[in-house]
Amino acid sequence: MRPSLILAFLAAVFPLVATPGASLTLVVREVTARGRGRALPIILGTVTGLYVHATLAIAGLSALVMHSSTDFEIVRLLGAAYLIGLGVHCWRTVPTPPGDGTPAEREPRGAVASYGQAVLANVLNPKAASIFLTLVPQFLDVHHELAPQILTLATAQGLLVAAWLTGWTVVLSGANRFLASARAKGRWKRITGCVLIGLGLRSALA
């Protein structure tokens, strides 16, 4: 695949990548609460979700979902419910300042859980699927095998997403000392919860 086509694709997809969504919200939640190391599972999970969409596009299943209104609605509502559930979870696990007589936040389930959340957030996002059905085809050469081209573009997008989320991780890590108190973490988790719930409602009502 010609490098010029890959660069053109990245230029076209970047505005979508830069639009704040569930993946960035999860990175904000994890980095501000537990440090920069917890961004890696989110980044890996998001990239994994891209490869899932690429695989479905190759198999033609994404086209089936996007062209069947019933199936599309099911995927959209599942994604919306998942985002709302994550948002509610953020609100319920807000850390409390020491000495207020309430239990501290539970120990997180670990990196595997964060990875799974990021995978689901991406896989259940119809907008991510639509990229491989509306944008990717514009950069494919029908005279060559489609699967390698789709995987190449998915890899390019994955690297772009990883770089974007890593950049945010660095920024958040630099500001983390200002966000280290339980009170500040609580504010961030409430903001994160509101954003996730808002994303879910927007998806459900779209």
Rank of each mutant, 00 (worst) to 15 (best):
N125G: 10
A111V: 07
R92L: 15
C194H: 07
L151G: 03
A111M: 06
G186A: 09
F72D: 04
G167A: 00
L135G: 06
A163G: 10
V65E: 06
L56A: 12
L159M: 12
A104E: 13
Q138I: 07
M66V: 15
R190G: 09
L133Y: 10
G174F: 02
T48E: 00
A59N: 08
V65I: 15
L201G: 03
V31D: 01
A118G: 08
K189H: 13
G60K: 01
L7Q: 03
E107T: 14
W164A: 13
N176R: 15
T166I: 05
I74T: 08
P3H: 07
T169I: 00
T166H: 04
I58K: 00
V161N: 13
A113W: 13
V52K: 03
I84Y: 01
A11P: 01
D100P: 05
A81S: 12
E105N: 09
Q138G: 09
R38V: 10
L159W: 05
A204I: 02
V170R: 00
L78V: 11
L140R: 02
R29G: 09
R202H: 15
K185E: 11
V52T: 07
V171M: 05
S114R: 07
V112P: 08
S69P: 08
T70H: 14
K127S: 10
P41E: 01
G21N: 00
L56F: 14
L78K: 01
V123S: 07
A63K: 03
L83V: 02
R177S: 10
A63Y: 06
A59D: 05
W91L: 15
A18V: 04
A80Q: 03
P98T: 09
M1Y: 08
A154R: 01
H67L: 08
R106A: 15
P137A: 06
G79V: 03
S181V: 02
Q157T: 09
L120S: 11
R2A: 13
Q117H: 12
S114W: 06
L124C: 10
P126C: 08
R2C: 10
E107L: 14
L24P: 05
R76N: 12
V195T: 11
E30L: 10
T70C: 09
S62D: 13
E105I: 12
V195R: 03
T55G: 14
A184G: 10
C90M: 11
E30G: 06
R38N: 10
A59C: 09
V136Y: 03
V52H: 04
A39Q: 04
L83K: 09
R2S: 15
G35I: 01
W164V: 11
V123C: 06
V123Y: 09
V88D: 06
T166R: 02
F132H: 05
G200M: 00
L40E: 02
A33F: 01
R76P: 09
L160A: 11
T102M: 15
L199N: 00
L172N: 00
R36I: 13
I197H: 04
